[in-house]
Computed example of a mutant assay.
Amino acid sequence: MSLFSLLGAIEIGLIFSLVALGVLISFRLLRFPDLTVDGSFPLGGAVCAILIANGINPFMATLVATAAGAVAGLVTGWLNVRLKIMDLLASILMMIALYSVNLRIMGGPNVPLINDPTVFTLLQPGGLEDYWWRPLLLVVIVVAAKLAMDWFFATERGLAIRATGSNARMARAQGINTGAMVLLGMAVSNALVGLAGALFAQTQGGSDISMGIGTIVIGLAAVIVGESILPSRRIALATLAVIIGAIVYRFFIAAALNSDFIGLKAQDLNLVTAVLVTIALVIPQLKRRLRSKRVPDAPKSL
């Protein structure tokens, strides 16, 4: 693998680590199977790209895209909490609706950002190549998002969200408004996904209606791989694990697609993803079996 391919894999891995953090909130903390991600990711890219193309400051465009993702998650939560639609079905309905919404926002299937400014070009120091600068800036953004998430979920409101996901009935008995916590958690989750979509559009030179296909699978893969590498119940280690999982996932994808002796091509991306997720799911089971074999049987009583 060339240095350029390695840095590209790290760059994409860092962007999708924001998606993985959002998926961690919905799937692990709230126990909410959220497929809105496949729509809120391109939503962030679409909003950001169309605003930049129309002369809006890239920083403001990125913030608006993040807010748009939060609104998408809020609507999904509202469908579930207020209209009593099953969580999975509510997220599917929102994902389908966002496809049309994204087309409306972009006015077509894609919005190019060829010579337009981005947050990366505006902050890029002179003399530093963009393929070095983008991963460095993304590291700062991801670390800031991780630390903010660690802080938030240690506050009273964050602990209430975690309690809602762990045991909603017990949380209500303790006076927690579980409906409001679901709405807040879904908003934060999809805000991170919308931010990732905005950054992805700026690094890839535009937004496309198909850029969200399979996003939820990538996010889940990053969470599963990260939990296999660094299993922990502490929120600080859990967020670190999914970031590592996203980067490792993209690294193995790039390594597999750049290995000529394997013969894989770009169209094999979904196959490689399925194989990696399967391996990540099987590894914990193998570890448990090995541990059970090492524990000696208890002596039988006479």
Rank of each mutant, 00 (worst) to 15 (best):
A254V: 10
A256H: 00
A256P: 05
A256V: 04
A256I: 06
A256E: 02
L257W: 01
L257I: 08
L257C: 02
L257Y: 02
L257F: 03
L257E: 05
L257G: 02
D260G: 12
D260P: 06
D260W: 12
D260A: 13
D260L: 11
F261D: 06
I262A: 05
I262N: 10
G263M: 00
G263Q: 03
G263A: 00
L264M: 05
L264G: 00
L264Q: 00
L264E: 01
L264W: 00
K265E: 15
A266K: 05
A266Y: 07
A266Q: 14
Q267M: 13
D268E: 05
L269G: 01
L269Q: 14
N270K: 13
N270G: 11
N270E: 14
N270F: 14
L271Q: 09
L271R: 03
V272E: 04
V272C: 06
V272Y: 03
V272W: 03
T273P: 08
T273W: 09
T273V: 06
T273F: 12
T273H: 13
A274I: 12
A274T: 03
A274Q: 01
V275H: 00
V275T: 11
L276R: 02
L276F: 12
V277A: 14
V277P: 12
V277M: 15
V277G: 13
V277H: 12
T278H: 09
T278R: 02
I279N: 04
I279V: 15
A280W: 10
A280L: 14
A280I: 13
L281F: 07
L281M: 15
V282H: 03
V282M: 13
V282G: 05
I283Q: 09
I283C: 06
I283N: 09
I283Y: 10
I283A: 09
I283V: 15
P284N: 06
P284L: 08
P284G: 09
P284K: 02
Q285I: 11
Q285K: 13
L286R: 01
L286W: 05
K287W: 02
K287H: 12
K287I: 03
K287D: 02
R288Y: 11
R289L: 15
R289H: 15
R289Q: 10
L290R: 02
L290D: 05
R291C: 01
R291M: 04
S292M: 08
S292Q: 10
K293C: 01
R294A: 14
R294N: 11
R294W: 07
R294T: 02
R294D: 06
V295W: 00
V295A: 12
V295N: 06
V295M: 01
